[in-house]
Design a protein around this nucleic acid. Structure first.
Length: 256
DNA sequence: ATGACCGCTCTAAGCGGA
């Protein structure tokens, strides 16, 4: 089973690349972030034509998350929003059950700067995520929490840690709350010593200079770890015509 | 080189992103 997480930076602007991606990889489940759609703008028909159903949490011009499932799989018991999140209208969390997994697509707030009121709200969002995962674990769910966490888990996930001193995405406050979610970082589990990124600033030719961050993660229950076959980043979708500034992360799970 | 993006939209000499 192939699961993908991808911050598309506007699904409307990215629809050609998203459809290209679905046709190429034929993933079973896709977690999308930053869809930037009003509810009525979400491209349900275009995705259905490509062979995918969707559950989307759409908040308008910013944020927005969605889950897609290939025809033949069904997304059941969807839930929209994260209990206890600081701003419920921002559309940053969507859950559904598929193939025995509780799959979540999340877009954690950016935080802007350490002095900004957005920074403590980012920390609160991460705490609410940990609470929700604990609740799901208590209900014996197998959890696959994927998305753009806007946190680089370690200095190895940052092209130049010195440049990020006094910046968001790398602080001990953010990293400790990410760790407290209590799931396994699938990419890092299979690639303990590799430095690879999922996001590169559009500015300054950063992608071509290799200046990025690993902030898009798939966090999985311990019980899923034995099923991890491959985890990789498709950098080709950070290239070419109108790319997102994030590359998709692909997670291949063996059958049970 | 003290430069360099992109997608939104109250279409901006602006905002937000990371």
């Amino acid at each position: 089973m192939l699961v993908v997480t991808w911050n598309v930076n506007s699904l409307r602007a990215r629809l050609p690349r998203a459809l290209e991606f679905l046709e190429l990889h034929r993933p079973d489940v896709v977690c999308l972030q930053e869809t930037k759609c009003a509810p009525e703008q979400f491209p349900v028909a275009e995705l259905a034509d490509a062979g995918y159903s969707a559950e989307h949490h759409s908040g308008g011009r910013w944020a927005g998350v969605a889950l897609l499932a290939r025809d033949g799989l069904s997304l059941t018991d969807p839930a929209f929003g994260l209990p206890g999140e600081p701003a419920a209208d921002e559309a940053r969390w969507v859950e559904a059950s598929v193939s025995g997994l509780r799959v979540i697509s999340t877009y954690v707030p950016n935080g802007r700067t350490l002095e900004s009121p957005e920074f403590p709200r980012k920390l609160r969002f991460l705490e609410a995520a940990a609470d929700r995962v604990a609740e799901l674990k208590a209900g014996d769910a197998t959890v696959l929490l994927s998305g753009d966490f806007n946190v680089a888990p370690a200095d190895a996930d940052v092209y130049d840690p010195e440049q990020f001193v006094e910046s968001t995405h790398v602080t001990a406050e953010e990293r400790s709350r990410l760790a407290a979610i209590g799931l396994v970082d699938a990419y890092r589990h299979l690639h303990p010593d590799t430095q690879q990124f999922t996001w590169w600033d559009y500015r300054g030719g950063n992608f071509h200079k290799g200046l990025g961050l690993r902030i898009d993660l798939a966090l999985i229950s311990e019980s899923l770890v034995p099923r991890l076959a491959h985890v990789g980043i498709d950098r080709n979708f950070r290239k070419g015509q109108k790319p997102s500034d994030h590359a998709p992360l692909l997670i291949e799970l063996r059958a049970e």
